[in-house]
Simulated assay, not measured.
Amino acid sequence: MSKAVLLVNLGSPDSTSVSDVKRYLDEFLTDERVIDKAFVRKVIVPLIILNTRPKKSAEAYASVWTDEGSPLIVTSEHQAEKLGQSVAPKVYLAMRYGNPSIANVISQILKDGVTSLYVIPLYPQYAMSSYETVVVKVMEEINQQKPDLDVSFLQPFYNDPDYLDILAESIGENLPEGTDKLVFSFHGIPERHLRVSDPSHAHCLCVKDCCTRANPAHATCYKHQCLMTVKGVVERLKLPEDKYFVSFQSRLGRDPWLTPYTDATLARFGREGVKKVRVVCPAFVTDCLETLEEIAEEAKEIFEDAGGEDFAVIPCLNEDDRWIQYLAKQVEGWLNS
């Protein structure tokens, strides 16, 4: 039996041209697990968003693009290469949106004679717009191309002690003495997605303290899993409560999204005299537009304009050897299961 590993990350436009960015956004924003309202997905996106947003997004991508290409793609390729040097099975890389596409990579995997596949969605927490859509897309392609392919998935690892050890160490190494606030900025999602992902439809955002009261819904609750990641990190770093804060970034549209918002939080900190801030984005394991442009550039400007003085983003785990070895350990566990 030939075994292989497939890493799947978010994706990126092929270039910073407006046409490539528009093509990428079209695929991303018409995913029903990203925008679950059919009217918005089928009418607002093509008629309004795709006629206004690509130019601005292209400028944002251009500000972080490297000579090698998209930072997310380049770093993901390096992650796959390093993992491939650490484990026996061949390691492939695909993107949920854009290239290399899941469809094409699975086609290549099958041509290479793979009969057993271990898929690693590169998302620590479960959300329908991240982890779930990867699983769904991979299974759609497998069911079309080879339904009898043996496939397993790495489950969300937001509370895995080994992962939390690595994340906390990485943050601690980038947290200078005298930091006033460590902001954990997670990618936002509409509040509605929490209710949709709750199989009971009676716990998330329905029960007081829903994220801290034990419930089976937590297995698919993004907010709970974000908070558990933070809890694990601050316990390891022994951070007092007044030294850290949790917020959410990247909202789109007018529907209620998870709060508090990162941009508003940083503006408030600046006005209140908070001078030294570090931001970490633990919804990502790879630096991308949301960390390199939205936080490192836009959020920094917001904080400094409001009176803040010392701002920096703590890098994602990227190619950290400890992170690669964590992935290798998961692969070994699959091989031995």
Score class of each variant (00 low, 15 high):
Asp263Phe: 10
Ser250Glu: 02
Ser17Ile: 01
Val105Asn: 04
Trp323Leu: 12
Ile295Asn: 03
Asp310Tyr: 11
Arg254Glu: 06
Val234Ala: 11
Glu77Ser: 06
Ser19His: 08
Ile324Phe: 13
Ile44Phe: 10
Gln125Thr: 11
Ser250Phe: 00
Leu72Gln: 07
Ala202Asp: 15
Arg96Phe: 03
Val207His: 10
Leu122His: 04
Gly178Pro: 10
Leu335Gln: 14
Ala80Asn: 03
Ala127Asp: 04
Pro147Gln: 12
Asp320Trp: 08
Leu93Ser: 08
Lys181Ala: 03
Ser57Val: 13
Lys111Asn: 08
Asp321Lys: 14
Gln145Gly: 07
Cys204Gly: 12
Val183Glu: 03
Asn99Trp: 02
Thr286Asp: 05
Glu297Cys: 05
Leu182Gly: 11
Arg192Ile: 01
Val246Gly: 09
Leu289Met: 06
Glu140His: 12
Val135Trp: 03
Glu68Trp: 06
Asn104Glu: 09
Asp305Met: 13
Asp255Pro: 11
Pro124Gly: 06
Lys181Arg: 15
Val151Ile: 08
Leu327Arg: 12
Tyr118Leu: 01
Tyr244Phe: 15
Val246Arg: 06
Ser185Pro: 12
Val151Phe: 14
Gln108Val: 02
Val138Lys: 09
Cys206Tyr: 09
Asp112Thr: 00
Val230Arg: 13
Met95Lys: 06
Gln330Phe: 04
Gln325Asp: 14
Phe269Gln: 02
Ser2Asn: 15
Ser185Lys: 05
Val274Asp: 02
Cys211Phe: 13
Tyr131Pro: 05
Asn51Gly: 13
Cys316Phe: 09
Met95Pro: 03
Val274Trp: 03
Tyr261Thr: 07
His187Glu: 07
Ile324Tyr: 06
Ser15Tyr: 08
Ile49His: 10
Glu132His: 13
Lys329Pro: 08
Ser12Glu: 07
Ala202Glu: 14
Ser2Pro: 14
Pro147Tyr: 05
Thr229Pro: 04
Val135Arg: 12
Leu327Thr: 13
Val105Ile: 11
Val277Leu: 04
Gln79Leu: 09
Gly172Asp: 00
Asn9Gln: 10
Arg53Ser: 12
Leu205Asn: 10
Glu290Leu: 11
Ser197Glu: 15
Pro71Ile: 06
Glu298Ile: 13
His78Ser: 08
Lys137Phe: 06
Ile49Cys: 14
Leu149Arg: 08
Arg96Ala: 00
Thr66Trp: 09
Gln325Cys: 12
Ile295Tyr: 02
Val8Arg: 13
Ser101Tyr: 01
Lys231Asn: 11
Pro176Phe: 12
Asn143Phe: 15
Val135Asp: 01
Ala4Phe: 01
Lys22Ile: 12
Asp162Arg: 07
Pro156Val: 09
Ile73Leu: 12
Leu29Asn: 08
Gly188Leu: 01
Val151Thr: 14
Glu77Cys: 05
Leu83Ser: 04
Met95Leu: 01
Lys223Gly: 07
Ser63Asp: 01
Val313Thr: 03
Val138Asp: 04
Val183Ser: 03
Thr220Gly: 09
Ala88Asp: 11
Val18Gln: 05
Lys223Arg: 15
Leu317Trp: 01
Thr212Gln: 14
Lys111Asp: 00
Arg23Met: 08
